[in-house]
Design a protein around this nucleic acid. Structure first.
Lengths: 107, 107
DNA sequence: ATCTACTACCTTGCTTTACAATATAGCAAG
DNA sequence: CTTGCTATATTGTAAAGCAAGGTAGTAGAT
């Protein structure tokens, strides 16, 4: 059992939360996540996730030139995305409390 | 996005923790999880998971008669299972801290 | 006897999703 | 002109939750 399975259904909420703070582009997110304690989230994970969320209308993209490479695709959170982020946060808090409750039993 | 994806890689650790407390059988686990805040974990989820963990050597089973139905299959945690439970707990704490960190930013 | 309901276990097929691997391409320094 | 960093995208695979369905045992009511 690796650690990757744990991320399912959690990563999208985390990306939403990060983009909600400030406009970000995919490549930046990949590096930024590490700063928050996530180890090596690959681009093969992030780009499909961003496109999925864009298709769902949670985020929007605008192209901008980069000072050092190809054009960047900056994402911002839509109102629908804010709603989803709030729902995610609620789900997470509930799940987190349940797991903590179970793990606390053994002492 | 439903809540079910979030459970991936988490449910097995939770089941391990519950079985580590006391000998349990599958049907009982299905009902018991609700008491810990998990909503409706179906038997189609639990039984394959138990068999998977048994195959991995994390839990062992013994049959026992039931006062009200077919024989029950009670599970106990093996030493390997204890090791895995400890590893799971560490992974969970780390992930949980990371997500909290990200979600806390928006205030 | 038969019907209903609860207990208890197991299997099949579907769907979602993380991710490795791979591809493409721009820019800059040496 | 090659190396390396930046930047986005696609393909194929595997893991895992779960709805739906199946099989049985026990027991009380009609």
């Amino acid at each position: 059992m690796s650690s990757t399975q744990m991320l399912k259904g959690i990563l999208d909420g985390c990306l939403l939360a990060l983009i909600a703070e400030e406009e970000l582009y995919g490549y930046e997110l990949a590096t930024k996540l590490a700063a928050y304690g996530f180890s090596d989230i690959s681009e093969g994970t992030i780009y499909p996730l961003l496109m999925r969320m864009q298709k769902l209308g949670w985020i929007e993209a605008t192209h901008r030139v980069s000072p050092s490479g190809p054009k960047r695709k900056y994402y911002t959170v839509t109102p629908d995305g804010r709603t989803e982020l709030a729902a995610f946060t609620t789900r997470w808090q509930k799940l987190s409390a349940s797991v903590q409750h179970i793990l606390k039993e053994e002492s």
